[in-house]
Design a protein around this nucleic acid. Sequence first.
DNA 1: TGGTCTATAGCAAACGTTTGCCAAAAATCG
DNA 2: CGATTTTTGGCAAACGTTTGCTATAGACCA
Lengths: 356, 356
Amino acid sequence: MNKNKDVVGEDQSGALMADVARLAGVAISTVSRALANPRRVNEKTRAKINAAAKQLGYTPNAMARGLRVGKSNIIMIILPGSLYYGVSQIIPQVLQSINKSLIQGGYNLMIANLDRDEISERHILDLAFGGSVRGAIILSSKLPEVDGRSLANSGLPIVSMLLDMSDAGLQSVVTNDREAVRDVTAELIRLGHRRFFYLAGPEGNYHDVERYGGVLEALEAAGLSKEAVRRSGGRLDYQHGFDIGVQAADDFAGLAEKPTAVIATSDDMAISFVSRIQRAGLSIPDDLSVVSFDGSPVCEFSSPPLSTIEQPVEEMGRAAVELLLDALGQRQNPDCVRTVVRSKLILRESIAPPKI
Amino acid sequence: MNKNKDVVGEDQSGALMADVARLAGVAISTVSRALANPRRVNEKTRAKINAAAKQLGYTPNAMARGLRVGKSNIIMIILPGSLYYGVSQIIPQVLQSINKSLIQGGYNLMIANLDRDEISERHILDLAFGGSVRGAIILSSKLPEVDGRSLANSGLPIVSMLLDMSDAGLQSVVTNDREAVRDVTAELIRLGHRRFFYLAGPEGNYHDVERYGGVLEALEAAGLSKEAVRRSGGRLDYQHGFDIGVQAADDFAGLAEKPTAVIATSDDMAISFVSRIQRAGLSIPDDLSVVSFDGSPVCEFSSPPLSTIEQPVEEMGRAAVELLLDALGQRQNPDCVRTVVRSKLILRESIAPPKI
DNA sequence: TGGTCTATAGCAAACGTTTGCCAAAAATCG
DNA sequence: CGATTTTTGGCAAACGTTTGCTATAGACCA
């Protein structure tokens, strides 16, 4: 029946499609079709082939297939090397959510870190131009570009997540940063707050622009002056979110007229800020209300529990993958280049009306 | 000079090695050698080839190479699907550290989530047996195994990280959990504590065994009875670290004779535990000392700042990659299957002598 | 100067798939 | 029952590299 040399311990990554074909008594091409396109081959033969494949523990070689069809099944996610303020908290969730969606579509997820050096840029470009990856999800605002090669014209479908890069023509999945911050600021105003302290991430960053914009909009809507809000942070060199909060606490101490409400653009900075402020003898929310951005689980267990705007990362991940898969399926839809997933304000005890 | 059809907008992922060869006026094989093994080809020719390659923006096709040499340059990291207690905090660092080391060695990092369902197991096995990956770093205690195929005999080099799986014959990179917990427990004893509360992760888990063992060793060394420590947690179904802490606080409330020191096996559970305990009116460290495990940055900003045993994740990541790369380089060294990287106790205000 | 050796470059055969094309067999139809 | 269509399976040519082997051309030695 099987005229193999000596079919016994056929383990190890050994079984080839040819082996399956031989065992099933058919041609290689038939095996290929049976596996990929079941309806192209007789049910009887297919059964034989499947049995043979199973018996041999056959697993198709992905690289051979990839080479032949000219496409890989790997998607790369480009993470900012220095995980900027808020993002580090939510990376595991993002990864998990994206990976799960991708696998369902038959894709795999590869990690690429985009540092500020040329090496990492070159590396990413090699991945893109070397046919290793089929598409990319990018969480950074910078598109790698070296020696004339640019990710932008690599021909790869790219979806941006968290940051709006629709200006660059990239499909973008973001949350409604501006609106969310505007709403929470409005709520603070409603509670009676009139002087605000805004903790910025890297200045000019999309998130900074949007979120600060949200604050200003709320102030304007309430007939308050722009002067009602003071900024802290905004350094251009990346730093840990916690460091930003610490420094902001110092800045706060130096203010003549103390704000009564703080809007932080990440949970990290809010947490370290609160810690330092409390150490300085102030009380939250009695002396100062605090709200932040991200929705890290840890906020629930701060003292006091922190109000935060929750980024729907899992949903955003799913959406990003869906867009990417659509793009891969040739259904180019250049119409909607920006998908907004609504965030959710979680109100906790860190917010109260100002004293007096 | 260049007798190409019309060499102008030669962008897109188009340039092949054949193109480079034609432009440089040499054979394909020469190009290949010039790029991979520079000393095998004349300096003059090499210069021409490099110039041509650059001009065309040539990037070698990774799948073709992989197919030919029978090896991929992708390493997969297997993450436990339900990120168990402590781990979620440190994943981004782990990933970053591992990825950086891998890239230096010319490898890429692919993510694989190992959930508790067969699908994810099968998926990982396909990756392994399909030649897609060259090696694996595993952060889970379970080796995928389905239909007779098992990761263990996939022929892939595997390194375990965080968990000691040297029993299974896997190179393992761990921290000195037992010793670290023993030391900190001894320190608590020295401060005068006699009744302890231990917050467990999944019972029987390597970390649980080691860390709880550390507590017991310290008790014994001090001539105290095993009864001096009460356990909480240890449920087998995975749950968020924060949930464990919340539940532990309930358990604590039910204890007749209150412990004076808490040893938590992750920062997450310590944080939520402390939060609940404080809400119940107890004060840290006056009523209760707390120390935990992981070394998350957020601990510094808890109130009070939490003492924690810092896992040297970056170092462990580097070590794991190094071991893996060694294994790939055929230098099989089955001697030392367990690498211990020392953790670091960070003492903060959450620890004090017991009140009276 | 003839012979031997070494450096350099080319030819062509892999690697394990997929797939266009064709042949045989089976099914359908007039 | 012959002619036409449909199903089914096989052959062989790709896909873009790497690499063993071979051929050429200098270099070196006697």
